[in-house]
């Protein structure tokens, strides 16, 4: 009798924790795949030898070019460079038809955030990895997750609501991450520094 009570309690606790840690976050995000698969590792490997800035350029005005457009990719990919099916599809569907790829941007900031790469790269000298982690050496583009309510990508919200350990790169670009770095570097961190 007593054991059964404990068992019920344990099952209930597990169900509640499981719901909180897995089911709710799972239900909260809509998952979708990138329109085209892409390997950063191939492009940044020694054989190809591209650097981040070659495709994700900063304009003269300090605005981040961000996601490369077709014109960046087309010169090399007019003809297949490798044997992957994805590349073939990319050439047939996009390059040949001159259609832009609708990339899903993992780091797209919320509407009320002002972020400029220029001060962070030019003045603070941050490396891309500082915020984007090892994204440049990944083989595949991760599944993209978008919050159903806020419509923000999961990366900017962090992968868990309550984070007990210090930020890892894939823990997202939460306000806390920005403010921690600002704090450590003695940079101002009032609301209007980053919000618009």
């Amino acid at each position: 009798m007593k054991n059964r009570a404990w068992l019920t309690f344990a099952v209930g606790l597990l169900a509640a924790l499981g719901g909180g840690w897995f089911a709710v976050p799972w239900a909260m995000y809509r998952r979708s795949e990138q329109p085209v698969q892409f390997s950063h590792r191939v492009h940044t490997s020694e054989a190809v030898g591209l650097s981040c800035q070659d495709c994700h350029a900063l304009s003269d005005g300090g605005k981040f070019g961000g996601i490369p457009r077709l014109e960046t990719c087309a010169p090399c990919h007019a003809e297949p460079q490798g044997k992957s099916a994805d590349e073939k599809r990319f050439i047939n569907e996009y390059v040949a038809k001159n259609r832009e790829v609708q990339w899903l941007v993992y780091a797209r900031q919320p509407e009320n955030v002002y972020f400029s790469h220029a001060p962070h790269i030019r003045l603070a000298g941050l490396k891309c990895e500082q915020c984007h982690g090892q994204h440049g050496t990944t083989d595949r583009l991760r599944t993209f997750e978008r919050n159903r309510i806020s419509t923000y990508p999961r990366d900017v919200e962090g992968y868990s609501l309550v984070r007990l350990q210090p930020s890892r790169w894939n823990e997202g670009m939460k306000m806390d991450d920005c403010s921690r770095c600002h704090h450590e570097r003695g940079v101002e961190e009032s609301c209007l520094t980053c919000h618009k």
Partner: peptide, 12 residues
Amino acid sequence: WQAAVAKAAANG
């Protein structure tokens, strides 16, 4: 102001 800061930063 934010745009001006970014512009200045782009020029170092």
